[in-house]
Structure formats: structure tokens, C-alpha cells
């Protein structure tokens, strides 16, 4: 067994490369999802009933689809529509589309609980349009939503492992390749599991810090 972990250690560079891909996919995917999700949240909170119903319907529908299904649709399905993405880009595309729905829903749930007062004051002081959102509304939402956004970040980290199925060279894929080459399944996958664990604890620590910041800003 120790010998097995030795083998994995010799190929730690592959794990690190996989980890980097996992981190990049997670961070880029989450950032884009948060950005687009914010715009979708504006639609979810629209004063127009049809806009609200249609956007909510799409968001709810998206949340009924397993992530791997969406990754397949991006990787195998989009070429049928003439859009060829390599596996890495298809994976990222799936992460963004999938999580946009979740991020939008998270922000909507915080938004409806946000006091009217601070927004009304902003209106009275002449804020409107994009600046009302970027200066007053979204900073408050992001602070209050940090635990939920953190949970979603952990979900994204775990979802990236699905991308091994479409051969994206992320962490699980790296562990898989080490195991199939040297037949050290236990050591290879336990190493991956421990790295995922550390990564998720890092996210939780980050949420803890942001929550302290949010507490004084409530």
C-alpha cells in the first residue's frame, strides 16, 4: 500500500495539473455563472409578469437537468447544430449554463428578503439603472448570499469530476489515468478524494471569512 502511494507521489505532477484544471474550470465557470446569473436575477425580479414567468420557467427547467446531461448536450449535441467545442470548452460551457440557473435562483431568494428601505433611499438620492444594481443592490445580495454561493462553489468543484467522462483532464481524470497505467486504484483515488476535501474546506474557510465581513454590514 505504501508502495502504491509512492507511485502516486512520483506522478504528483499529473495530479497537480488535474487540480489546476479543476480549479480554473471552477473559478472561471462560477464567475461567469455569477455574472450571467445576476442578469437573470434581474429578469426574475422584473415588474413585468410575462418576463418573470418565462425566466422563472427556464431557470426551474434548467435545475431539473443533471449536470452530466448538460455536458453531453454541449459536447455531443452542439456539433449537430454546427457548433464544435473541444472537450474543455464544452465542459466550461456546461458549467456556466448549469450554474447560471442556480446562481440566479440564489440571488432571487436573497433579493426578495432584502429590505425595501435601502433601495428606496437609493432611488430618492437619484440612483437608477445599472448603477443602482452595481452600487446598492448586488453588493448587499452578494454579502448575504455568500454561504449559498460557497455551497454552490463546492457543488461546482464536485461537478467538474463528471467532465472526466468527456475526457477533460481534471483531477479525477488525472487520478484515473495514474490508476489505469500503474494499477494503484486505492492510492490514486484516495489522493484525489483528499485533494477535493482540502479544496472544499478552503472554500468553507473563505465563506467563513466573508460571513464575518457580512455580519457587520447587515
Amino acid at each position: 500500500m505504501t508502495r502504491d502511494f509512492g507511485v502516486v507521489w512520483e506522478h504528483a505532477d499529473r495530479l497537480v495539473e488535474g487540480l489546476l484544471n479543476t480549479i480554473i474550470l471552477t473559478l472561471v465557470g462560477a464567475s461567469l455563472a455569477l455574472l450571467i446569473g445576476s442578469l437573470v436575477a434581474i429578469l426574475l425580479m422584473s415588474s413585468s409578469r410575462p418576463v418573470r414567468l418565462i425566466s422563472q420557467g427556464i431557470v426551474d427547467l434548467m435545475r431539473c437537468i443533471p449536470f452530466l446531461m448538460l455536458a453531453y448536450l454541449a459536447y455531443y449535441g452542439l456539433p449537430s447544430l454546427g457548433l464544435n467545442l473541444d472537450n474543455w470548452t464544452a465542459g466550461l460551457f456546461a458549467i456556466v449554463v448549469y450554474n447560471t440557473a442556480y446562481m440566479a435562483e440564489i440571488m432571487r431568494s436573497i433579493w426578495i428578503g432584502l429590505g425595501r428601505e435601502s433601495i428606496e433611499a437609493a432611488t430618492a438620492f437619484g440612483f437608477r439603472g445599472p448603477r443602482l444594481y452595481t452600487r446598492i443592490i448586488f453588493p448587499q445580495i452578494f454579502l448575504a448570499a455568500s454561504p449559498m454561493i460557497g455551497n454552490q462553489l463546492i457543488q461546482i468543484i464536485k461537478d467538474t469530476a463528471f467532465l472526466t467522462i468527456i475526457a477533460v483532464p481534471e483531477l479525477t481524470h488525472a487520478a484515473s489515468s495514474i490508476q489505469s497505467q500503474y494499477f494503484v486504484p486505492f492510492a490514486a483515488f484516495i489522493a484525489a478524494v483528499l485533494i477535493y476535501w482540502a479544496l472544499c474546506m478552503l472554500v468553507e474557510a473563505g465563506v467563513f471569512v466573508v460571513e464575518r465581513l457580512a455580519e457587520v454590514r447587515r
Binding site: E117, S118, E120, A121, A122, T123, A124, F125, G126, I136, Q140, R217, R218
Partner: peptide
Amino acid sequence: RARIGMVFQHFNLWP
């Protein structure tokens, strides 16, 4: 609106 200052009953500060 920016030419009129308003003070609110519930303060309405930006938290």
C-alpha cells in the same frame, strides 16, 4: 431627485 435631500423614518442607510 438628486436636488432634494430626504431623511427617512427608518433611516434607510445602506448597510
